[in-house]
Design a binder for these strands. Structure first.
Lengths: 336, 336
DNA sequence: CTGTTAGCGCGTTCAG
DNA sequence: CTGAACGCGCTAACAG
């Protein structure tokens, strides 16, 4: 159905090798280039990447495996990475693990079967056995957001403990001592790290560990954040300030706070999504992940592997999240 | 690097043909099957989909091209489709057009170069020239959410006009006559359709077209919805009820309403995202798109094309969106 | 600068 | 039931 070199040969009379060179930057007579281009236009020819990849052992495409497609953090990073990769000549294939380690395994093998040149993964858990197969084929991997056990791979993460600690500091500076955290299960790397950073910072600032009932492990959903905030506010001694451990919690907690408006108004630090922060008034403080920088570093690492230095020891880039201080509100006015 | 049939031949002594048959359901002696499986385990062999696709002219993968990756509606549909496609033996490649017709064009050609067997597309605009190339290669296409000009392709859309009309009816039944719509540019198919359905329903119910200042074309973002709602509420004669034209508007408008709580409380119908609806109290009414059904129909249409009936005339499935009525609140109590 | 030759890894005849 | 031979569309040496 689709035209091939043979069709171009039929039209131009040139050999397959010349035609191939034309498409791969070899030396071809200007006159012949033109004839080929004419044939291309006439036939609607496009190179077959499958055949090219099979032959050249380079598909010029990278696989991106996301733990959850439906997460702004992920899609934002993907957009940023895709743009950079396109500039470098790489196409990208996005796969969704839907939170399932099994689907993740399938996705990785699917991508290896497609002969991707490299893999970027936001892993579901800390253990990703399929990556051993990638390594066996010499396919480099960069983990994003969470490191991967086995440590054979590059990674880009943020300093989650420091990020949450900065939020705690902001609140403590305003006089808060009863600070709560909306967090997820400890089995998630980021949730665990943020919880640990939180506990450490609270202890440092208040001289006491956080109260257990102020550190809620919740389902990582909007509803989880909503319920979490409501439960906190209904405690016998509710916290005067709340740190949200991620975007979903921030959104859910915001809605809960609005509903409770008037009754209680804890100070509040959101996470992740500056667009959302811009829209809430008074604008709350936010921990903002350096999404562009994460994408840039991930691309940098994978491209470096692809262009040779396969033997460099695996590297984990740890980036700093920013704390964007909001407009005047409870936490800046202090407890007054 | 990766093992091939040749490696298996070396280990088992069997011929390439026999090995191929083993992997493709041919008749192979049980004893030989076992020997092959042992070799597979030993070598960590996996079929090379690239080579297989080149040879068999079927890659068993479909391309999914999204106008925007970062949109819950899209990612939800993708998840639902992926699951069904996997059951049918198809892998999927997701590409993001990032709202750019140019990127969309690139994505389609990227996918055609990967020899995808079919294409599902949520198009950026109504015109997608690259689809002609798909047609020329006999690659079937299903458009989702918005139809595509040229009409050579199957499509799955919802009845946008009826959906918005139902929302207007609900509000009108509660006595509202000053109803507003948060909408996007008319160049978006869904935004235009919803606006038209809105205008028609308002005229039918109130005997007058909607006031121009009550039909706001906004940037399709959370912030757009936020600003839109605020602008509406600051009008000299603000509407008593507001219909949101999509998810982003719903979220932004919700936040604006919360901020304005006490001052004004228009009745309110959200769009698209039931998870969000569950979290807002009192729970607002929502137009809910039948996401699973959309995914199911899209998969059905593309699979039908793939299994032969290439000559069936293009079909556009029009599905009904549901109006989920919320808890008691302004619109049910009427204007009282 | 161009053409010939030989595969990449696999699926599919067709003899045996 | 098995194996030899050929080719999918393209790239990569080589000669010329």
């Amino acid at each position: 159905m689709a035209a091939t070199y043979k069709d171009i040969r039929r039209v131009t009379g040139l050999s397959l090798a010349t035609i191939s060179k034309h498409f791969n930057g070899g030396n071809v007579l200007a006159a012949n280039r033109e004839r080929i281009e004419e044939a291309v236009a006439e036939l609607g020819y496009r190179v077959n990447d499958v055949a090219r990849g099979l032959r050249s052992r380079r598909s010029m495409t990278l696989g991106i495996v996301l733990d959850e497609l439906n997460r702004t953090f992920n899609t934002t990073i993907v957009s940023a990475m895709e743009e950079r990769l396109r500039d470098a000549g790489y196409g990208t294939i996005i796969c969704d693990s839907r939170g399932s380690a099994e689907a993740e395994d399938e996705a990785i093998h699917f991508l290896l079967g497609k002969m991707v040149d490299g893999l970027v993964i936001v892993p579901v858990g800390s253990d990703v056995p399929a990556l051993a197969d990638a390594a066996a084929r010499g396919v480099p991997v960069v983990a994003v957001d969470r490191p991967v056990a086995g440590a054979g791979t590059d990674a880009v993460v943020i300093d989650n403990r420091a990020a949450v600690a900065a939020a705690v500091d902001l609140l403590a500076d305003a006089g808060h001592t009863a600070i709560a955290l909306l967090t997820g299960p400890d089995s998630w790397y980021t949730m665990r790290e943020r919880r640990l950073g939180f506990a450490e910072a609270v202890a440092r600032r208040t001289g006491r560990p956080p109260r257990p009932e102020h550190v809620l492990p919740l389902p990582v959903t909007i509803e989880g954040g909503f319920d979490g905030m409501r439960r906190l506010m209904r405690l016998a001694s509710p916290p005067t300030a709340v740190v949200c451990g991620n975007y979903e919690f921030t959104l859910g907690a915001t809605i809960a706070l609005n509903e409770l408006a008037g009754e209680v108004t804890p100070a509040f630090v959101g996470f992740d999504h500056l667009d959302l922060a811009r829209v809430i008034r008074p604008r709350p403080s936010f921990v903002v992940q350096p999404v562009d920088e994460i994408a840039a570093r991930a691309v940098e690492l994978i491209l470096a592997r692809l262009s040779g230095d396969a033997e460099r020891p695996p590297e984990t880039a740890v980036l700093r999240a920013d704390l964007v201080v909001g407009e005047a509100s409870t936490y800046e006015r202090g407890l007054s």
